[in-house]
């Protein structure tokens, strides 16, 4: 299995990365960023939307900062999983990603920007030719979506990054840089419900780091992941919950987010707010679980059937919220 040829750029600072990105843009050259490469390289080997240029961030050291509320894009997932200083929910979540070997390579930024996945897309070139390609990698044929056919507009490939759910539940802010400058936005606004564009990153733009609110340490949480094997497998459904308990032991804040169920991870803030107001322990846990289940619409393009994944959302949500079964609402 061979990758198509590409030119590799190895900037040693963010500035020079931006310069290279700007130059390539000026020359109208397509390129990809590469961090750990655990997502990009397999896709390249399968000739999935490969580009003639690749800019590696491996030597850009300023992206590797890891502090309690600041997580650089180049922080390795294994560093996050074993760090004492990062939020326990992130530690737990990153510890479930892929395998130790992959986590040693894979990065936080790479996980957030993970390409969406689909049975009809993540296949070898000959395989995709045999189904006449698909919308996400149509090789110039204008092919239709193979999951939901005759729509020819929206790609429904599934976004299967674990970290997104937990970072959404912790109300993270994402910071981007491009040759035109940098910008920051709430993580929930970063994603787009489209399996091809996936997020708001513009051409040449990249993720530099994520930050958590200053009160993040007051929040506890849990991440529940549905998958067949305890290693390697992408989530078939992921539910993260975070909550804040006030001095009286009552529920003062609640966020629930889902991933791996659609083309986009979702923060279910309205549902959580509604539940929190009249929080009634087990009863609220159950009704919120049902509400989250209703809010997601998985399609048939991952290993487990969508009906099962959807049913499991309720179980996962309930399990994630289990610590709140005996908690009462704050006044």
């Amino acid at each position: 299995m061979r990758m198509p040829p590409f030119e590799l750029h190895l900037p040693e600072s963010l500035d020079s990365a931006m310069t290279i990105a700007g130059e390539l843009a000026d020359e109208d050259c397509d390129f990809d960023w590469i961090a750990g490469g655990t997502d990009l390289l397999p896709n390249y080997k399968w000739h999935l939307n490969s580009k003639p240029h690749v800019i590696s961030l491996a030597k850009v050291s300023e992206l590797s900062t890891l502090e309690p509320t600041h997580i650089g894009a180049m922080v390795r997932l294994q560093a996050l999983a074993t760090s004492d200083s990062c939020h326990p929910l992130l530690r737990q979540t990153s510890g479930t990603i892929a395998s130790v070997m992959i986590r040693r390579s894979g990065t936080v930024g790479g996980n957030i920007c993970l390409d969406t996945r689909c049975f009809w897309f993540n296949q070898g070139e000959e395989w995709r030719r045999s189904i006449d390609w698909c919308i996400k990698c149509d090789c110039g044929t204008g092919a239709d979506c193979r999951v939901i056919s005759h729509q020819n507009e929206l790609c429904v490939a599934t976004y299967q990054a674990d970290l997104a759910a937990s970072l959404l539940a912790l109300d993270a802010t994402i910071h981007l840089a491009s040759p035109d400058g940098s910008r920051s936005l709430p993580l929930a606004e970063f994603f787009q419900e489209d399996g091809i564009t996936r997020n708001v990153l513009k051409d040449g733009e990249m993720v530099t780091h994520l930050t958590l609110p200053d009160d993040a340490e007051d929040w506890q949480g849990d991440y529940q992941k549905l998958r067949l094997r305890e290693s390697w497998d992408f989530p078939e459904a992921g539910i993260a919950a975070a909550w804040k308990i006030d001095g009286d032991g009552n529920l003062d804040g609640l966020r629930v987010a889902s991933t791996a169920l659609e083309s986009i991870p979702r923060l279910h803030q309205e549902l959580a707010d509604e539940a929190r107001e009249g929080w009634a322990g087990v009863e609220s846990v159950n009704s919120l679980a049902v509400a989250v289940q209703k809010a997601v619409k998985p399609v048939n393009n991952t290993w487990f059937p969508p009906s099962y994944r959807k049913k499991m959302v309720r179980v996962l949500t309930r399990r994630a919220l289990a610590p709140l079964e005996r908690v009462e609402a704050a006044n």
Binding site: N122, R146, R229, W303
Partner: peptide, 28 residues
């Protein structure tokens, strides 16, 4: 528990790779 060669709607083998052909890991 997990291994199967799964053929999709089009009759194509969907999991001709070791990520989706689910061999148990040491954890299982």
């Amino acid at each position: 528990l997990s291994e199967e060669m799964r053929y999709g709607r089009s009759g194509n083998l969907l999991n001709a790779d070791l990520l989706d052909y689910k061999i148990p890991t040491v954890h299982e």
